[in-house]
Computed example of a mutant assay.
Amino acid sequence: MALPSLDLDLHGSHVLITGGAGLIGRVVVDHFVAAGARVSCLDISYSTEVNPECKSHAPYTQIHCDVSSEDSVQAAFETATSTHGPVEVCVALASLDFSVLQHSSFVDASFMQLKRTLDVNIAGTWLTAREWLRGVRKAKQEGKKLSNVNLIIIGSESGHFGERQNAEYSLAKSAVQGGLLMSLRAEVVREWPGARVNAVAPGPVDTDRWTEECKQNPEQYYLEAQATTALCQPVPRGAVAKAILFLASDNFSSHVHGQVINVDGGKQGKVVWTKEEVA
């Protein structure tokens, strides 16, 4: 009896990652490159000038993309496809997070920040998903062979539990890991048999920025990563990346579809009142 293959089988697959230059995105990119994938890394921080190396078939390509712009998303996918072929795995990671959002009580919340967050975190994910699925449809019409055809949406624990002082972030994450995910669950299989869509919802991730924030506010570590978290520690970036790779691999997750995978250390909710507030 032959033993089963425990290979991710991602070698040669074209993986497109939005927000690939971010603190989490960089680690996700590294994991896919290590798995042998051809990676298109999209980020708003990259130059708008097309790098001449994009025409080569190196396994990794950086492409400028503003996910809140329809034209920018379409142009980025065109560059990625002309370089590495049709996008098979799409990781919609780009979003505005707490490092750039202002925190305030809801009564003092900024309407402009709400609109910007919805443009990037919801519309940007929507545009990314649509462009990926359009490419899948075109590949099918042209009779091309694809593998590991799936979309992975990056949500958040905030989409489950809410986020006091940043309702706009919670609203956006619940939209993409809820309504958008459930809608695409029934859509993608109509464009490519066996295509899948799932979401990863991380808890507090142990980035350099989060560590610095905890130094400035020592209570943050306890409140976010211990008080309501069974494993009593923040989530390593590699744990998020490996969950994404698991979902990307048909060999490992071929029948995981329409699911939210919580990578949060057993998060049970949010602390509502601190001792100081109660006092």
Rank of each mutant, 00 (worst) to 15 (best):
A2Y: 04
L3H: 03
D7N: 05
D9I: 07
H11Q: 06
H11M: 01
S13A: 13
I17E: 04
T18W: 14
T18H: 10
G19M: 13
G25S: 06
G25I: 08
V28S: 05
V29N: 04
F32L: 04
V33R: 06
A35D: 08
A37R: 09
C41N: 14
T48N: 13
T48Q: 12
K55I: 04
T61A: 15
V73S: 08
Q74P: 12
A75K: 06
F77G: 05
E78I: 15
T83M: 09
G85R: 00
V89C: 09
A92E: 04
L96R: 14
D97Q: 07
S99W: 02
Q102F: 11
Q102G: 15
H103W: 09
S104R: 14
S104V: 03
V107C: 04
S110R: 06
K115T: 15
L118A: 09
D119L: 15
N121S: 11
G124M: 15
R130E: 11
E131Q: 11
V136M: 01
V136F: 04
R137E: 12
K138M: 05
K140L: 11
Q141C: 11
K144N: 12
S147W: 06
V149Q: 14
L151K: 02
G155Q: 08
G159Q: 09
E163K: 13
N166D: 08
A167I: 04
A167P: 02
A167M: 05
E168S: 14
S170V: 10
L171K: 15
S174I: 15
G178M: 07
L181Q: 05
M182F: 06
R185M: 03
V188L: 00
V189P: 00
P193D: 10
V197H: 01
N198S: 15
V200T: 11
V200A: 09
P204G: 00
V205D: 01
D206H: 02
D208H: 02
D208I: 10
R209Y: 12
R209C: 01
W210A: 13
T211G: 03
E213K: 09
N217V: 15
P218I: 08
Y222W: 15
T229L: 03
P234R: 01
G238Q: 12
G238E: 12
V240L: 02
A243E: 00
I244Q: 01
I244R: 00
L245S: 07
L247C: 04
A248L: 06
H255L: 11
N262K: 03
N262P: 00
N262S: 10
D264R: 00
G269W: 02
K270A: 06
V272H: 07
V272N: 04
E276F: 05
E276H: 13
A279I: 01
